[in-house]
């Protein structure tokens, strides 16, 4: 007992224990993976060359909805502690507070990245035999394919981190999920209502559009390049994390 001490590794282990011992964690993660695989397979079955989509973008059709699911995973991990009151026990054990935020971000982001990359690869490989014969067959070895599939994992991993950050910042599950859905799903539609040239110049920089750029094998003219897009989205996530960290340090629990 005398060797006990608080450490970053300990905080990570404690947060992993919290994460892995809730049923909601596995339900949310499972639903996210299922959305990617199921919607990818459906798109592969019904999609044809007329849509202008390639095999990879068809396989990744489920990522838009999966983003909401992994975002909820992140929100539950952070804001969920405020709604249950668990946060007081957490910050009594770790009074420095910030290590908890980093550990939650790492766990949500890492888990979402790993599971969603696998789901994307499964959707792609299992969808390939179902594709319309008019579409060009693509393999994992073709240029940009692995980048796009792992990029889907990276984007969804970052969305989970965004969920953690929003949850810590807003301290309310409902508010955080609504904000996340608004930013990822509703904002792009609203921007389309702007006058044409303005919409065209703003649209690529929206969080979901910038983050999705990494998922396309052949980037379209209207979007950022894959890596630039990912960098922009990472920037949004980092800024939100910073705001969450600031609030954690400055305000009472």
């Amino acid at each position: 007992m005398t060797t006990m001490s608080l450490s970053r590794r300990g905080v990570l282990a404690g947060e992993w224990t919290k994460f892995s011992t809730l049923r909601s964690t596995w339900v949310t993660t499972g639903v996210s993976a299922l959305l990617v695989v199921a919607l990818g397979l459906i798109a592969a079955t019904v999609g044809d060359s007329a849509t202008g989509m390639d095999a990879v973008s068809l396989a990744l059709s489920g990522t838009t909805l999966a983003a909401l699911a992994v975002g909820v995973l992140g929100v539950l991990l952070s804001a969920g502690e405020y709604s249950t009151g668990m946060i007081r026990a957490t910050f009594t054990a770790v009074p420095a507070r910030l290590p908890v935020l980093w550990a939650k971000a790492l766990i949500a982001g890492g888990t979402a990245f790993a599971v969603m990359t696998i789901a994307a690869v499964v959707a792609f490989l299992a969808g390939n035999p179902l594709l319309d014969s008019g579409l060009t067959a693509l393999g994992l070895g073709d240029a940009g394919v692995l980048r796009a599939l792992a990029g889907a994992g990276a984007y969804l991993g970052l969305v989970a981190v965004l969920g953690v950050a929003l949850g810590m910042l807003l301290r309310s599950s409902a508010g955080s999920i609504a904000t996340l859905a608004g930013v990822l799903l509703i904002l792009p539609g609203l921007v389309m209502l702007l006058p044409g040239s303005l919409a065209e110049s703003v649209s690529p920089y929206l969080p979901s559009n910038a983050g999705s750029a990494i998922m396309s094998v052949n980037p379209s003219d209207g979007s950022l390049s894959p890596w630039a897009g990912l960098a922009v989205f990472t920037g949004y996530v980092v800024v939100t994390l910073g705001a969450a960290a600031y609030r954690l340090r400055k305000s009472d629990v």
């Binding site: 060797t3 006990m4 001490s5 608080l6 450490s7 300990g10 905080v11 282990a13 404690g14 947060e15 224990t17 919290k18 011992t21 809730l22 049923r23 909601s24 969920g80 502690e81 249950t84 009151g85 668990m86 946060i87 007081r88 026990a89 054990a93 770790v94």
Partner: peptide
Amino acid sequence: GVHPGRSAANHLLAMARTHG
């Protein structure tokens, strides 16, 4: 102030792990 979905043992274990 405990997450209702977690068992008592896991709640204590999560706190214990932060301190080794």
